[in-house]
Structure formats: structure tokens, C-alpha cells
Design a protein around this nucleic acid. Structure first.
Lengths: 208, 208
DNA sequence: TCATTTCTGTGTTGATCGATACATAAATGC
DNA sequence: GCATTTATGTATCGATCAACACAGAAATGA
């Protein structure tokens, strides 16, 4: 590859990981270049040469987060044998990711750039887009299940998708504020109860 | 009161309201003194004389928010004739507050300072405390209902409190990302289904 | 009238922000 | 060896940050 020139003296991925943890803990606007270079163990010019800018580093850190720490959440939803199990696994994975020991609490994507200065609007839109993907994926799952006859035909896929996306995002705020893994697992039980109620056909006693 | 001296040339509450909207939209770290003085229509020294510091202004703005825009959410929970109606009204009020036209989307308290720079930790703790109050109020409501025999004795108040707090906070993230009032109202239906399931005694068919 | 008190606008403070200029170091190709 | 290429460390850039000094303005009380 790039054999020419003086070789980089640090591991790019390791540095990215360190930057990710700083941004995960303090957010984009709460992390200064000084915070980042200190954590990454490099000087400012090396950071700019390797990542471009603070914003580019943040976006790359978020992408790295989604491919590592948050990957389990999506995989859980996609790979479970049934949709119900997938939803439960997704919530459990989200809780696990949000309550890791020795790491910032809450999901970097769920909490990232929910509000920011006007000049950082680009960052907010990028994070908003990543959060949108969760809801769209959920809706597609519900739509497919309805089309396959696995769920009642009158079920509203968008409604359930919004509901589960709301739970995943709410879990991160709870975790950030100190909620434990055990406290949050109770949320899954109630979420599944809603799912069971919404996917049950012709049960007049269900609402009593 | 303070009759002596040159009278203040601006309305303190109006200025606080303007500051609240800036912080609500951009967050604490995303709002600069320049943003604030411009929106408030005053100069920096007047701001410091009237409010003390940027941090003090933010905390006062959040308190003002909780007493005005967010007041309906708590009142709905406390004043409804039944707990079930109170929960539904609380969620609806939270959705209304989070999707007002011409105002920032999402709740200022739910989204406020979920992460920040270490030097602003005091701000984060204050917001975390305000969010904690919601969960504690909910738990107390459930505990009282159990003690009064209105809910099954084996019901876990903390579990349901975490669940509903998660929903309220998740709703704000959805709203901030552009979810409409109608989309979010679907969440209430599913939440009440969970409540009904959790508060039903001896229903072996309920889990089928 | 005039001292006292409080607020306002101008201008500026030191600190920190994100981002680079520049000279040097360390690799390769020939 | 020597030109070329790329990365590094030092030192610093202009801009902006939150906060304030100061003098003048506008009210009061005596």
C-alpha cells in the first residue's frame, strides 16, 4: 500500500477507538481537540493528517461505534428465528451496550447530537439519519411479517416501529443517568407484553 | 421592592423565556453568550447582572421550562381520576410539549446535558436529578396504588416506573428527530396495553 | 440640587477553541 | 548517496469563548 514516506507511529484503529470513547462520554461539542489528542496519545497535526478534522473524526468514530459496540443490537434483530425473539434480543443487546462496565453509559448514537449549535447541524443530521435507520428497519420487519401472514393484517407496522425505537432510545437516557442492567431488563418484559397484545387477533377480552 | 437606582430596561421573564428557547434548541454547550444576548435583546453585562452566569441562566431556564412547558406533564399524572388515565394523560402531555409548532422539538429536560464536557458536570447532574424526579414520582404512584389495593400486590412498582420513564424520554428523542404528534400517539396505545397486562391478576391466557 | 444607587453600552480581558506553518525525522525508490 | 515522500513535534494562527472594567445614563431619597 503506502510504503513511501515516514510510517505512521501510532495505530490508526487504536487511536480511533480512544477518540470514540471520548466522544461517547462527552459528546461532539463537549470534546475538545485537547481532550482528543491527549486520549489518543498523538499531537494535533497527526490527528488532522489521519482523520481530516474534528467533525470527520467524530463521524468516523460513530461509524466505528455502530460496527462494533452497537453491531449486536442490529444483528440480534436480524438473526433471531422469530420476530418476537428478535425484538427481545435487540432490547437486551441495547441494554448490554448501554451498561458496559468501564465504558460510557448509554448508546453513542441514541444520545449523540440531539441538540447542538447551528454550525454543527451537519453532525446532528448525520446522527438523526443513523437513528432513523433503526425505526425503518423495525418497520420493514413488521411489514414483512404482516405480508408473510405471521402478524394480523390490520396491524400498523409504523406504529410498532415507533414504539420500539422509542424504547431503545429511552433506554440510553435511563442508562446514562445510572439505571442498572437489571432495572432496564424489566422494560423488555413490558415491551413484549405490548407486542403480544398488538399481534393478537380477535381477542375482545384482551382489553379488559 | 428595588425602587432605588436605574430601572432595568428589559423584562426579566421575557428575557429568560428567550434564553430558554435558545438553550432548548441548541443545548447548554451549543449556546454561546453571543447567541443568548442576541436572542434576549440585551448586552452581556446586563445578562450577568440579572442572571449571574451562563450556567446559572441555563439552570434558571430549565426550571422555568419545568414550571411552564413541562408543567402539564406532571399535572396530568397527578390530577387524573385514575392511575391509568393519569399515565395516558402524562404521555399525551409529553408528546404535546415535545411537538409544539414554532418551538424546539423534544423536551428540554429529557434531552438536556445527557453528555457534556467534564467542566460542565454540575449541569449534567442537575438535569439528571430532574429526570430522576419523574421516575420517582411514577414509582410512588404505583406503590400507592398497590398499597390501596388498586393494583395487584405482586406488581413491581420500580419496574413499571422505569418502563414509563423510558417511554417519556424516548418520545423526546423521536420528536427531536422529526416524529409527528400522530406517530407518537401510537406509543401511548402500546404503553397502556403493557400497563393493562401488568396490572391484570391471574390471567393465564394473557400471555398466549 | 445633589449624593447615592443601579443599570446600560462600549470595549476588552485572558483563555481556549479548532486548525496549520514550518522545520525536522524517517521511511522508500533509484 | 540522494531525491522524494510522508509523518512528527513545536509553536502558533486568527477566531471565539465566557466574563468583566469602566464610564456614562437614569432612577431614587434627602
Amino acid at each position: 500500500m503506502s510504503a513511501r514516506g515516514r510510517p505512521r507511529s501510532f495505530d490508526r484503529t487504536e487511536a480511533l477507538e480512544k477518540a470514540m470513547e471520548v466522544f461517547w462520554q462527552q459528546g461532539f461539542e463537549g470534546s475538545s481537540m485537547s481532550d482528543l489528542t491527549t486520549a489518543m496519545g498523538i499531537n494535533s497535526p497527526s490527528l488532522y493528517a489521519a482523520f481530516g478534522s474534528k467533525e470527520a473524526l467524530y463521524l468516523e468514530a460513530v461509524r466505528h461505534f455502530s460496527e462494533t459496540a452497537a453491531a449486536g443490537t442490529f444483528r440480534a434483530l436480524m438473526e433471531a428465528p422469530t420476530l418476537r425473539e428478535g425484538l427481545a434480543a435487540m432490547l437486551h443487546a441495547s441494554i448490554s451496550c448501554s451498561t458496559q462496565e468501564g465504558r460510557p453509559q448509554g448508546c453513542m448514537i441514541a444520545l449523540g447530537a440531539t441538540h447542538c449549535a447551528p454550525e454543527n447541524e451537519r453532525v446532528r443530521l448525520e446522527l438523526k439519519e443513523m437513528r432513523r435507520i433503526l425505526r425503518d428497519t423495525l418497520r420493514l420487519k413488521f411489514e414483512t411479517a404482516v405480508a408473510d401472514g405471521l402478524l394480523p393484517p390490520d396491524l400498523d407496522p409504523g406504529s410498532l416501529a415507533t414504539y420500539f425505537a422509542t424504547l431503545v432510545h429511552g433506554i440510553s437516557i435511563q442508562a446514562r443517568d445510572g439505571a442498572t442492567r437489571e432495572e432496564l431488563k424489566a422494560v423488555v418484559v413490558h415491551a413484549l407484553a405490548s407486542f403480544d397484545r398488538a399481534t393478537r387477533v380477535n381477542d375482545p377480552a384482551g382489553s379488559a
